[in-house]
Amino acid sequence: MQGYAYVGAMGVLIVVLYAYITHLYTKKKNADGLDYEKYSDMALNDDISDVPVAPVADKSDGKKK
């Protein structure tokens, strides 16, 4: 019983891991053109007057706290 749960859990985790890797590395070519490397700029251009990498469109749209 534990053995099956273990193998099953491993399988699921492996699938999730590879899906995530694929997601990270193919996203750039997709239509919405999201490039993860762009996020590095969040540290480099972090003055309060700099343009955000991906701005929050409307600040009051009920973000979870």
């Binding site: 899906a19 997601h23 996020y39 979870k64």
Partner: peptide
């Protein structure tokens, strides 16, 4: 598929 991760702090 995993895009929500970095945008939704609660999830």
């Amino acid at each position: 598929m995993f895009h929500w991760l970095e945008k939704n702090p609660f999830l």
